[in-house]
Amino acid sequence: MDYYEFWQAVIKEIATAPANEERRIVTFHDPRQYAGALSQWKSLKPSRPGLRKVKISPLIRAFVVPAASAVNLMHKYAGALTIEEDLRIQIHSSAASPTTRKTSHYLPWGVKAIRAPQAWSRSTGVHIKIGVIDTGADFLHPDLKASLASGVNLLHRGILPLDDNGHGTHIAGTLAAAGGTRGMMGVAPRSLIYPVKAFDHTGSAYVSDIVLGIDWCVQNRIDLINMSFGMKTRSKALHDVVVKAYRAGIPIIASSGNDGKRGGDYPARYSETIAVGAIDNKRRVASFSNRGSYIDVYGPGENVPSCWPKEGYREMSGTSMATSHVTGAAALLLALCPGLTPRQLKLLLRRTSSPLRLRKGQRRAALGGGAVDAMRLLRARTRVRRIAAGEGPASTG
């Protein structure tokens, strides 16, 4: 392959492409060819400023380039490349509504429902690093100051991943708020959130930015990834990077979507993720939540209060909110059992979940897993090997 010619074609299209032109994800089949293209890109970039717009994912050997140049590359190097559309992807939540509840020593109903406070005598999630691929976070929120690491802003490299939407701050609050006696408490208040800003102020992102976000989490040895978003279409690049994280031992916990149907969105549909549905405060599957046998576990997701930018608090509903409860419970367990594999964590979450309350006409088997229970999860840690091997149910309590 002529790598110089390859990049000249890309440079030509970048020079004429409009700012909002569609993009393509170009993945190399051969690691040696990717290495050659990467080396040429690095050598040309100082003299070709346009190449700085090209994004790379070393984990799956991919470049993100303008759509027109990808078409030309596809014709010339069809056998060496996989080229796919860089689709848009949305966060999973409803609109936020203000909450006037006083926050003095505030435990949201979802944190209590999964019995997180009872688990804190055993684990608070200390030292567990959680990558939250979302809209960023409010670094000035008093309940989050001690819970946030610098993370990364994939939309504007070098700038702090500040939240201009609110969704990411809400997720971070449920996960790890540590307001003590004067503020809100999250599920795993001693865990550390690494905001990975991939979504803009409208709650929309490109698949390539999700790929780069997972890539960043793997490269930075994050322990656990929260992904509260989804799309209807499969993406090979997204699946490839999810598999890479799975093989690296990093569990990905993903929301199933808010269509109120059997089935659900990707990436939760990929078997390498832990798929989450939402329940209400009566432990019934929320009317908006997707459901089905592929759902591994359900978490509180209806009218969930949490942190909001500018030192505020809001209620939100969605499988996004449910996912942050499950990720928090997983962080409590990983702090005690840091060697757990993604497969073992999934099995433990499924087998320690509490039974759901069924609505009229519902069948338990058609819903998938049960409701996450932090206490049952931690009590099962001594039986990790037996449960992971499928030899029997976890203890209850």
Rank of each mutant, 00 (worst) to 15 (best):
Y4W: 09
F6T: 07
W7D: 02
A9F: 04
I11S: 14
T16I: 15
R24L: 01
P31Y: 10
R32G: 14
Q33D: 08
Y34A: 12
Y34P: 04
Y34S: 03
K42F: 01
S47A: 13
I56H: 07
S57D: 09
F63K: 11
A70P: 00
N72S: 15
M74E: 11
H75T: 07
H75E: 15
G79T: 00
L81H: 07
T82A: 01
D86R: 08
S93K: 12
T99S: 15
T100V: 14
R101F: 01
W109I: 05
V111F: 01
S121Y: 02
S123C: 04
G125H: 02
G125D: 02
G131Q: 14
G131L: 13
V132D: 07
V132P: 02
I133N: 09
A137L: 04
L148E: 12
L148G: 11
S150P: 01
L155M: 14
P161I: 01
L162P: 01
G173H: 11
A176L: 06
G180L: 02
M184V: 00
M185Y: 03
R190K: 15
F199L: 07
S204Q: 12
V207M: 07
V211I: 14
I222E: 09
S228Y: 08
K232T: 05
S235P: 06
K236N: 06
K236Y: 11
H239V: 06
V243P: 00
K244N: 08
K244H: 15
I253T: 09
S255D: 02
S255W: 07
A268W: 06
A278Y: 09
I279F: 00
R284E: 07
V285K: 08
V285F: 10
F288H: 13
Y298R: 09
G299T: 04
N303R: 15
K310A: 07
R314W: 12
S324F: 03
L336C: 10
P338S: 02
T341R: 13
P342E: 10
P342T: 10
Q344N: 04
R351I: 00
R359S: 14
R359H: 13
G361T: 04
Q362N: 00
A365K: 11
A366Y: 13
L367T: 08
G369D: 08
M375Q: 13
M375L: 14
V384D: 05
A388M: 08
A389D: 04
E391M: 06
E391C: 04
P393I: 06
A394T: 06
